[in-house]
Design a protein around this nucleic acid. Sequence first.
DNA 1: TACATATTTGTAATTATTATAAATTTGCAA
DNA 2: TTGCAAATTTATAATAATTACAAATATGTA
Lengths: 138, 138
Amino acid sequence: MGSSTENFIQILKNAGVKPSIQRIKIYDFLWNNRTHPTIDSIFQVLVNEIPTLSKTTVYNTMKLFMEHQLVRMVTIDESEARFDVVTQFHGHFKCEVCGKLMDVEIENPVLVNQAKLDFEVSEAHYYLKGICNECNNN
Amino acid sequence: MGSSTENFIQILKNAGVKPSIQRIKIYDFLWNNRTHPTIDSIFQVLVNEIPTLSKTTVYNTMKLFMEHQLVRMVTIDESEARFDVVTQFHGHFKCEVCGKLMDVEIENPVLVNQAKLDFEVSEAHYYLKGICNECNNN
DNA sequence: TACATATTTGTAATTATTATAAATTTGCAA
DNA sequence: TTGCAAATTTATAATAATTACAAATATGTA
């Protein structure tokens, strides 16, 4: 699968987002850095490529991307929002020692009886907290 | 099941938390108001009963309760933390129209293969977003 | 009662996010 | 190409949740 600029432009266009330089670079970064980055970490990296970049633009862009289903917000960290370019359902694990946030494969959970009927679901999130193996072995 | 002050004192003691007036009243409120309240909403109600109550005390107390597994933090709302006195695994549903946060019964999700081996899990959270029936019918 | 410790409180500091308006860029029509 | 309206980006200020801190108060015990 190619990951050239043209591809990112096409992904944005398909989602109904006009591909400005900033939007392309931000999407590019998310695509290639699947570490569930925060607004600030996105900004800190990209301000090197786009010296005039404003943090407000990163906020605006992530909001726009969310509205167009290009990213998911991950709210495990109470203090800062994180973002995930993978929008298919999957879980997250946060290690409370090293702080790393990892993807977790999980069977799509089953709502019990009544729950299925009580609302129209548009988004599902699942996450775990605990200690990762690396931290447990040290 | 009784829900008198004596019972709350016992619950706090069993969890290793010294039962001050403030802690008892806060736990009492959580036990009897299972609406996943925010720090501010807890404070606004209880400052009527304890006029000297400080919001810092509510923050401190919720932190202490979390450390002693008396409550769970719910982070569906990006802006404000919410708290749940029910610590057994269950899901949450947030209606994006009316904003209400409800409990959802759900089968305990199954981690796929490798995930089980990769970390020691201490907490699991599951939540949904969408539109509730009430909002859908109006 | 006296005192050490724990708890609460009020205030100030921090920090993520949002609001706002000016500056810049973009796309298009004349 | 030029001019202009709309979209986008930017910088700054405002907001609001949370944390840090130190003084005040309450608690338990010798």
